[in-house]
Simulated scan of single mutants.
Amino acid sequence: MKITDIRALTPDQLTENLLNLKKEQFNLRFQAATGQVEKTHRVNEIRKDIARIKTVLRAKAAA
C-alpha cells in the first residue's frame, strides 16, 4: 500500500485494514514456523504497511 492511498482512507477503514493485515501477519508467521511460507517478502511488506497505517491513524487522532 502506498502512503497516499492510506491517507485517503477514513479512520474506520484504516482500523479495518489494520485488523486484516494483523490477521495476515499471524497466518504468515504460522506458515513460516511450519516451513510452508511461499512469499517470504510478504512478511516485510505487511509489517511496513502496519507501521504506515498506525502512523496515519496517530496523525489523524492528533489533528
Rank of each mutant, 00 (worst) to 15 (best):
K60T: 11
L19E: 15
T34A: 10
I53A: 01
Q36V: 08
A8C: 07
I50K: 00
L18G: 01
R42Y: 03
A59N: 13
E16V: 12
L14R: 02
T40V: 13
L28E: 03
L14D: 01
N20Y: 11
K23T: 15
N17L: 15
K23P: 12
L14T: 02
Q36F: 05
D12Q: 07
K54P: 01
K54N: 03
N27E: 14
A63I: 15
D5S: 08
G35R: 03
H41E: 07
A8D: 08
A63D: 12
D49W: 00
F30C: 14
T4P: 03
N27R: 13
T10K: 04
T4F: 09
K60E: 06
D12I: 10
A33N: 15
T40D: 11
F30V: 14
I53K: 00
K48H: 02
A51M: 07
A32R: 05
A63M: 13
N20V: 15
K23F: 13
T4L: 07
K54S: 04
Q25K: 02
M1K: 05
T55I: 13
I46S: 01
Q13H: 06
R7A: 13
V56A: 02
I46R: 00
V56K: 01
A51P: 03
T34W: 09
R7K: 08
P11E: 11
A62S: 14
H41W: 06
L18A: 01
A62T: 15
L57Q: 01
E24H: 04
N27S: 14
L9M: 10
R52D: 08
A63C: 12
D12H: 04
R7D: 07
V43E: 00
D49M: 01
T10L: 04
A63S: 15
D5W: 13
T10C: 05
R47W: 06
N17E: 14
Q31K: 11
P11T: 10
T4C: 08
R7S: 10
I50L: 01
A8L: 11
V43D: 00
